[in-house]
Design a protein around this nucleic acid. Structure first.
Lengths: 143, 143
DNA sequence: ATTTAATCAGATTATTTTATCTGATTTAAG
DNA sequence: CTTAAATCAGATAAAATAATCTGATTAAAT
């Protein structure tokens, strides 16, 4: 199966986008996020933990604790979330898997794929979490 | 880790491209392909078998047997190989993994990602194996 | 005919990714 | 102070992907 983001990254992006729709100051528990987005609770907990380590998410421990964005949504780029979870290797390695593919010694797809990849990277870099706040997460996630 | 094609698909594309550089009529054994491309022999054998079932590759059994393209390289599109190995689901599902994402109910990335995906699909559909025959596989694959 | 070198078919193993479990720690609230 | 509800940390389990093994069949070459 061809894949763009890992499941972990998909879930992480979903959660971040969801958190961006909340009031500032409010925290949401992993359990609530899991239920809202239909993500296994323990799995999204782990992902939120790692996003906390990366400084993208803030966590409040103890009773009535939970998670919130660590900074202004306008300052969290999609690429930051992807980098924190999946890393950026895909934007810097040969799409055909040839070990020595580089501009001086390109694989047959090097040029054309490179253009697409650059566009994708640019899009993820330009777009911040904030742009999507008005969208309703619930609709696209209904069972 | 973010990934575009599965390992299976990468290897399959590498092998097909390599086969396209051969003389018409010539067959190459799985073992030779494996050595040339640094792919586990048994693994590439399986992949070549499935590409044979898909009608992309022709196989000659018995001693001095091997594999060759089943048709003119100008008539094998990259997308055909991808479809045979990884399938095309990635070109028709939400990049964020939202189950109900569709044009009437789009996820925040629907529009922008859709454009990129269409371009990628178009590229894989336009390009055939033949275009790459002059490229030297060995160079991009050197250890 | 026999040997040899190849594909083919199906089972098995290894590795990675996804998901779950267990228990410790933290903190708000009664 | 005690309880309840949450994160946190690390181990474990399950599923998917990647890789390997075993033996059967095929066909060219001797």
């Amino acid at each position: 199966m061809t894949v763009i983001f890992s499941k972990k990254c998909e879930y992480g992006l979903q959660a971040i986008l969801y958190l961006s729709t909340l009031e500032r100051e409010a925290v949401l528990s992993a359990d609530e996020i899991a239920r809202k987005l239909n993500i296994p609770k323990e799995f999204i907990s782990k992902i939120l933990q790692s996003l906390t380590d990366s400084g993208i998410v803030f966590s409040k421990k103890g009773k009535s604790g939970g998670f919130a964005l660590a900074k202004d949504p306008r300052r969290i780029r999609l690429i930051d979330v992807v980098a924190a979870i999946d890393g950026l290797a895909v934007f810097d390695s040969c799409v055909l898997g040839f070990p020595n593919c580089n501009p001086d010694n390109p694989c047959p797809l090097h040029e054309k794929w490179g253009q697409l990849r650059t566009k994708a990277y640019g899009m993820l870099t330009d777009e911040t979490i904030d742009l999507f706040r008005e969208k309703t997460i619930s609709k696209v996630n209904a069972k």
